[in-house]
Each structure stands twice: as structure tokens, then as C-alpha cells.
Design a protein around this nucleic acid. Sequence first.
DNA 1: TCTGGGGTCCTAGGACCC
DNA 2: TCTGGGGTCCTAGGACCC
Length: 402
Amino acid sequence: MDRIILHIDVNNAFLSWSALYLLKNGFPYDIRDRYAVIGGDKSKRKGIVLAKSNKAKKLGIKTADTLYSAKQKCKNLEIYPSNYEWYLKMSKQLFNLLSKYTNEIEIFSVDECFLDYTNIKKLYGNEITFAYKIKEEIKNTLGFTVNIGIANNKLCAKMASDFLKPDNVHTLYQNEIETKMYPLDVGDLFGVGKKTKEKLKNIKINTIGDLANADYKTMYRLFKNQGVELIKKARGIDDSLVVYWKVEPKGIGNEITLKEDIMTKEELYPYLFSLSEHVGLRIRKQNKYAYVVVVTLKNNHFKRYNHQRKLANPTSSDEEIYKIACSILSEMWQDEPIRLIGIRLDKLTTSKIRQISLFDKDTSLNVDVLEKLMDEINDKYGSQVIKKASTDQKKLFHKRLK
DNA sequence: TCTGGGGTCCTAGGACCC
DNA sequence: TCTGGGGTCCTAGGACCC
């Protein structure tokens, strides 16, 4: 049976949500009807467009444009600040509304999600009718519009929700891929960014259809495995599941653009310290520890580079993170003006204990740890090593460890 | 008045072990 | 003295997404 997947995407999320916030607080008009953008703080050197109204979009203003260039495109552009706390609230309201119908929802970002309709179709009927119904429900109860894409997999549902905006429902079923998707510019394909698009255009691949029919050998030569994946995507093939349980983050990072470029290592230490506190707090909130600390720098030419260090024992301590970060910074220091600095914790684990010596007498070993240890041994030496042991043998093993 | 911050995934090369 | 390859781990960097 074909799957039915919906992708729900808030139209101009940050701008729509800010519009609602302003209206709620007595603002005289709806910024969705103006030449308006949500912008970063210029005084902090973050002057870029985060979201734009449809009117502003029509003048060619794009997300991530500098506010300067956005104003070049529209002299009387209105710029409003972002309000992340409010955005999170609105986001939560949206997902709560949708979870009335099913819990098979995958939250993809603050303003979009996938919904697996396959199993609830018998409850709610035709998916197109359902999509229109919840689109209206969202508009009437929450006050903002969404686009909904309907397809037989996540990739096509996402592509479909990107068709004509705003406030629309589109389908992109298997049998519509050639007519609806093949004519699109190859850069419109999810997963094809600026660089890949350029490379593709160089070999005369201009549309998604061109990519779908591209020569495997050529694609492999130029893009390796990614090339083969790209062809599959262009043909609308995607087997990935709607993952509706809470996804554990793989890493935790914070970075900051400095008010001015900084020339010396020593001046960066205070920033490194406060970043350590930030990521430390976040990782402890999740009861996790990190095996890897990464320091990222961006120089005044916007070149980014990073160094990392793997730890023997994972950590969640501010001081430890800070010390390691300082040491990494020294190692990577190139004596050039620095615009941005960041710390990231990677390879997260829920357990602080990594290695247990089999002959260590005073390990406070519990079953969880034993299981983890077994997993590690199995991973390393092949699954049969421990699987074959009987339960009794396992107990014996456990006892010996004690 | 130049150009954010949070992520994920992939690749390539070197070290190291068997 | 000479010569493998397979596998894993680690690091750096790149591309992409919202």
C-alpha cells in the first residue's frame, strides 16, 4: 500500500508570527500586508533578513540578504526584530493542534513537520479534504496560514508544500512527479544548494528532469555517492520514515559574532568562557555528556574553520569544557582577526562512564552500564561474541565484574 | 551600515592495528 | 628486506537546511 505523507509548512513563519504578536499588543496594522522583513540586529553585525512578507518577496528580497541590500531593493522597507520566545510558543500551538489527529508527526523544524496519514486515512477520509480542513482550522484558530504538501513520501511532500504559496494545498503523488517536478529548476530540489547547482549547470543539468535522467557514471565521477542519491531524489524516490518520537540531538553548540573583530587569543578567553557556560548548561539540562569538544572560528574574510578534541572521558562541566576549548584555541590560533567564535559539544552520551576495566574491583557497575559495555564489545568484535552467551553466563560475567 | 545561529551528514586523509 | 590490504578511529573541511 502506498504511504500518504503530509508536509505542513508555515508561510513566512517568523514574519507571520511577529505580525500576530504585534497585533495582539495593539499594533495598528498587519505587517504581513506591508513591505516588511524580520531582521537581525545591525548594531551587533547581524543585519540580515530572517523572513520577509510576500510583498517584500515580490521585490526580490530573499532570506539572508543583508538589510542593506534589502533596502536597496525597497526604499520604504519596514524592519522588525525577531522574537524567538514567541515563535516557540506559536510553534508549540501548531504541533499541539496537529497531534489531536495523530501522534505520527515528525517535527522537522520550528515551523514545519511531516504527518503520516497512512494509518488514519480510514478515520478521516480523503487526504486532500483533510488537508484543506486543517489548513482552515489553523488559520481560524491560530491566525496564520500554512502550505500543505501531500505525497507518497517525505521528499515529495516537502517539494509539494513548496509549490505556489501562501495558504495552499498541493499534491505530488508518484504519478505526478514527471509533470509537476521534472520541469522545475534543479536548484529547487531539496538537497541541492548553491554549489551543487552550479556544478550541475556546468554539465548541462538544468532541470530536475535532467537530473532524473542523468548518466549514473558521470554523476558518480563528479559527486560520488551523493551523485547517485541526487538522481534518486530527482526521481522522487525516498524511503525514509516519519520519525515521530523525540529525536535526540547529536550535538549542542553555541556561537557568537563579536561586536568587533578580535585580534588576540587572550581577548577571546572571556567569550570562550561564557560559551562554555552556555553549552555546559544546555548539556546538563539533558543529563548528557560529550566526548568531543569543537572550537569554531570565523576570520574577517568569513572563512570558517574548526578544531576538535576527543576526550577519554566525556564531560558536561563548564570548567572542563573551557579548559579544553582554550587549549584547542591555542592549537588552531593563526594570529588573524576573528569575527565569530563558537563551541560545540559532539558525540553525546547519557553515561559518564566510558571504559571499565574488567579487572577493576571498585567499579559501581549497574545493569545499564553492563548493557552498554556489551553493546560496545558487540560493536567491536561482532555481534555473536556476547549474544551467544546464555543468561546464566551473563550473570556470571556480571558477578565477576563485581 | 556587508554578510546570523542552530544544526546534520558526508568525504578524505592519516594513524594505527591485525 | 620488502611488501599487502582491510577495518576502524579520528580530524578537518565542505555542503546543505531552516
